[in-house]
Design a protein around this nucleic acid. Structure first.
Lengths: 239, 239
DNA sequence: AAGTGGTCTAGACCACGCC
DNA sequence: GCGTGGTCTAGACCACTTT
C-alpha cells in the first residue's frame, strides 16, 4: 500500500518529485514508463498519469509525444523591456539557443492587421514564422509581421538572428517604443504541433508591437512559449 | 453519434466552446453537469472531463470545487510598470475589485528574506496575507513583507487598499525602483485553497520587490494569480 | 516488432456544496 | 439528503516512436 496524504496521485507525485529533487533524475533525463511506475503499488495507470499531469503543470517534468516523460531544465529569464534578442540573452545565461525559420512569405494585409499597422487591407506585408529552441528543446514559436513598405526585400536577409538588428542595420529603422502583452493560454493546433507538445498544454502568449520614433509599427510579433520554459523579469525605475 | 475531428474529447470541447461563443452560455453562468453532458452521446464521463480540462486550460471555463463548471469572465489587464494599485486599475476596467486581509502578523526575518532586505535573520518584519477578487471571484492571493524598522506600527493602518500609498502617506516612503518577476506555475496547497481552486491548476506567480531611492527594499510581494484572470501589458519607451 | 503515451469505456466510491 | 465534481480501478485499442 502506498498510503500517502490520503490521495494516491499526490503520493505518487511526491515520490517522483523527491527522486528529481534528490538528483536521482536529472534535467533532460527520461522517467520510467507509466507502466513501469505502476509496479508494486497496485495503482491504476490513470492514477499514475494524474500524478504526471500534476508535475507537468508545476513545470517539473515535460513530455515528448509518445516518447516519454522527461525532467524539465530550468527556465530562461526574459526581460520584455530589453531587446538584445533571444539569441544573446539565452547565450548570456549559459544555454544554447537556436532559431529555425519555418516559413517566410509575402502576404496581403488582413482586416485584423490593418488597424495595428495603420495600413489599408491588402497592403503588402511580410510574414515570418520561426521556432526557437534552448539546448535542443523547442520553447517558442512566433509569427512576425513587418510592413513591406518600410523594409522592402526583407525576406532576402538572414532571418535566423535578431530581426530588430536587421531592420536597424539594413533599413536604418530604430525601435523607439515597445508594447508587450502577455497572457497565459493553451497551446493548440499549430503552436502545439510546432512545439511538439500535446494540444491543450498551458503556455504563455506574448505579443510585442514595436514602434519607431514616428509612431509607425515596425514589427508585430506574436510568440507562444511553453509555460515551463520562461521566467519574466522586469526592472523599472520610477521617474 | 458526436463524430468530431476523429477525437471524441475535442469534439465535445468544440461543441461546448461553440455554445459559449454563440452566447448561449454567458460569463459567470454554470454549465450543465458532467453527467448531463454525457446524455445522448454514448460518451464516458472521463472523456467529458478531458474536454472540460481542455477548456479550462484555454481559460474559457473554470470550476468551483464540487459545485460545477462556469464560463470565465474576461481577464484583468495588469501593467507591472504602473502601480496605481489593484483597486484602481480593476475599477478603471469597469470591474468590481475587493480585498480581504487574511492575516497580518509580526514575524522574525527568515534566512530566505534576510538577503532580500539586507537585514539580519531575526529582525522584525511585518507579513500581510491578502486575497483579492474581481466581480466576486477570487483572482489572487499575496503575501507582503515589509521591514518593521522602516514602517513601525504598520499593521494598525488600514490594509485593504493600496499598501504603497499607506507607506507614502504615513511614512513618507516613496518607491523609486520596482523589480517584477513573473513565472507560470501550478497553484498548490495554500494558494489553491485560498483561491478555492483545485490544487495543481496553472497559475502565474508574480514577485514584486520595491526599492526606495536609497536602494532599500520597502516592500516584498509574492502574488499567485489564477491563470485565466490576468493579462499583462507593458509599454516601454526606449531612451 | 516492441514499447510508449494517447484515448476511451464502464463501472465504483467518496467528500463536499447546496438546499 | 441529493447532486456535484474528485478520485480510482481494470481493462481495451490505437498511433506513434524507438530499436
Amino acid at each position: 500500500m502506498t498510503q500517502p496524504d490520503s490521495l494516491h496521485y499526490l503520493g505518487v507525485r511526491d515520490a517522483i518529485a523527491t527522486r528529481i529533487a534528490g538528483g536521482e533524475l536529472k534535467p533532460g533525463e527520461r522517467l520510467p514508463s507509466e507502466r513501469q511506475l505502476q509496479v508494486g503499488g497496485g495503482v491504476a495507470r490513470g492514477t499514475i498519469r494524474e500524478a504526471l499531469f500534476q508535475l507537468e503543470a508545476e513545470g517539473i517534468i515535460y513530455r515528448k509525444d509518445r516518447s516519454g516523460w522527461y525532467v524539465s531544465p530550468p527556465p530562461v529569464v526574459y526581460d520584455p523591456t530589453r531587446w538584445e534578442g533571444f539569441m544573446s540573452y539565452v547565450e548570456a545565461q549559459g544555454r544554447r539557443p537556436e532559431t529555425e525559420t519555418l516559413s517566410k512569405t509575402e502576404i496581403a494585409c488582413t482586416p485584423a492587421l490593418a488597424p495595428i499597422f495603420g495600413r489599408p487591407v491588402g497592403a503588402p506585408m511580410y510574414r515570418i514564422r520561426r521556432r526557437r529552441s534552448v539546448d535542443g528543446r523547442a520553447v517558442l514559436v512566433e509569427t512576425i509581421v513587418v510592413d513591406a513598405a518600410l523594409a522592402p526585400d526583407l525576406l532576402s536577409h538572414p532571418l535566423d538572428g535578431s530581426l530588430t538588428s536587421v531592420l536597424k542595420s539594413a533599413y536604418n529603422i530604430a525601435v523607439a517604443r515597445n508594447r508587450v502583452d502577455m497572457q497565459p493560454c493553451a497551446l493548440t493546433r499549430g503552436e502545439a504541433e510546432a512545439l511538439q507538445v500535446k494540444s491543450g498544454l498551458p503556455g504563455l502568449n506574448v505579443v510585442r508591437t514595436s514602434y519607431d520614433a514616428q509612431g509607425r509599427v515596425v514589427e508585430f510579433d506574436r510568440e507562444y512559449w511553453r509555460h515551463d520554459a520562461l521566467k519574466i523579469s522586469v526592472d523599472i525605475r520610477v521617474r
